[in-house]
């Protein structure tokens, strides 16, 4: 068996979108002539995935993650380039191909709205012709991980978002697919449910050897789950490599949000220069205005101690509130272009 399960070369997908004109007269003009614009949602992406791997796809909104998933699952036809998954060309062999994969879309459920959960499972069992033994084993695996039995007889529409997400993931694993695509499976879930989802994914990968492709905004998903990640921006790959290296490059970065709405604009503007003077380092601390009086500092803890910077700010400025976070994806992208991952 081929060790590589996915091989994509120069995968490209463009969309033509209608530009609507504004206002009443615009609507009239649109009735008669229309303007189109091309969006390069995925633009020449090449990568490969090994069997049994968990791969994370991350990127800011509109980066092209979902489009990539749609290309890999055979829903969309590539504009150019090609991909084979487990020996199939997803788009052309769709029907045979999808018997072998599972798909979970975070925002939309594949379960039947009005059916009790267990009935949905039974229908899926028929559709994928899952042998009884496999079906029982997978349900048991799930019940050991999260107590799914409780919800068996509840119609899907009455489940909470978190319960629905878990059921959806269970549904996509029922037929022992060779690989599973999860598009933002943790979107809108709270911390404990997120943890559960990660636990399920990790266990299934380990026990059943399922290859998993997961897209997310949440860097937490990546750090906890995927040994390897691909960072996408504007339809192209910015980084493809071990999560460890990514973490090493960005793990020590922190963003420091300070509420300085009591200070004048020019006072805040002077902050960057002052910080550069006080804390000389290779990469100077970036300062960004949020527009509502909040200021965002991004700094690398390997170079300057976070606490020193914070202390300095507290001493020299009137700070009303403080928040400390991991580096945001937007900053990661900017820094990657500047060569942080090279």
């Amino acid at each position: 068996m081929n060790k590589k399960i996915i091989e994509a070369t120069g995968l490209t997908r463009h969309f033509r979108v209608l530009e609507r004109r504004e206002g009443l007269s615009g609507a009239f003009k649109d009735l008669f002539s229309r303007n189109y614009r091309t969006v390069k949602a995925v633009d020449g992406v090449s990568f490969s995935v090994d069997r049994g791997e968990i791969l994370g796809l991350i990127g800011p909104n509109g980066a092209g993650k979902s489009t990539t998933i749609k290309l890999l699952t055979g829903v969309l036809k590539p504009t150019a380039g090609g991909v084979t998954v487990d020996g199939f060309v997803p788009f052309s062999d769709r029907r045979r191909y999808v018997a072998n994969i599972g798909v979970v879309l975070g925002q939309r459920s594949q379960l039947w709205w009005n059916l009790p959960v267990i009935e949905s499972f039974k229908v899926l069992k028929e559709i994928y012709r899952v042998p009884d033994a496999v079906y029982e084993r997978n349900l048991k695996l799930f019940n050991d991980l999260v107590d799914l039995k409780r919800h068996y007889h509840t119609p899907v529409r009455k489940l909470s978002l978190g319960q629905k997400s878990i059921c959806d993931i269970a549904a996509s694993f029922l037929h022992d697919p060779a690989l599973i695509f999860l598009d933002e499976p943790t979107i809108g879930l709270d911390v404990s449910v997120k943890k559960n989802v990660r636990k399920i994914i990790r266990t299934l990968n380990r026990e059943l050897g399922t290859t998993i492709i997961i897209t997310t905004h949440d860097t937490g998903d990546i750090g906890n789950l995927c040994p390897r990640l691909i960072l996408i921006d504007k339809g192209t790959i910015v980084y493809d490599g071990p999560t460890a290296r990514f973490n090493k490059a960005f793990g020590s970065f922190r963003t420091l949000h300070l509420d300085m709405s009591d200070m004048g604009e020019d006072e805040r503007g002077a902050l960057e220069g002052r910080l550069a003077g006080c804390f000389p380092c290779r990469e100077k601390i970036s300062v960004r205005e949020e527009g509502d009086g909040w200021v965002t500092l991004t700094l690398n803890q390997d170079e300057v101690p976070l606490l020193d910077v914070l202390n300095h700010c507290l001493k020299t400025c009137r700070v009303k509130d403080v928040k400390i976070e991991d580096i945001s994806l937007e900053e990661v992208i900017i820094k990657s272009y500047e060569g942080a991952l090279a």
């Binding site: 609507r20 009443l24 609507a27 009239f28 649109d30 009735l31």
Partner: peptide, 16 residues
């Protein structure tokens, strides 16, 4: 009123 008006114009084929 204006919004509903615009919205119904937006679906050109629908309208035709």
């Amino acid at each position: 009123v204006r919004n509903m008006f615009l919205e119904s114009l937006n679906f050109r084929a629908d309208f035709i």
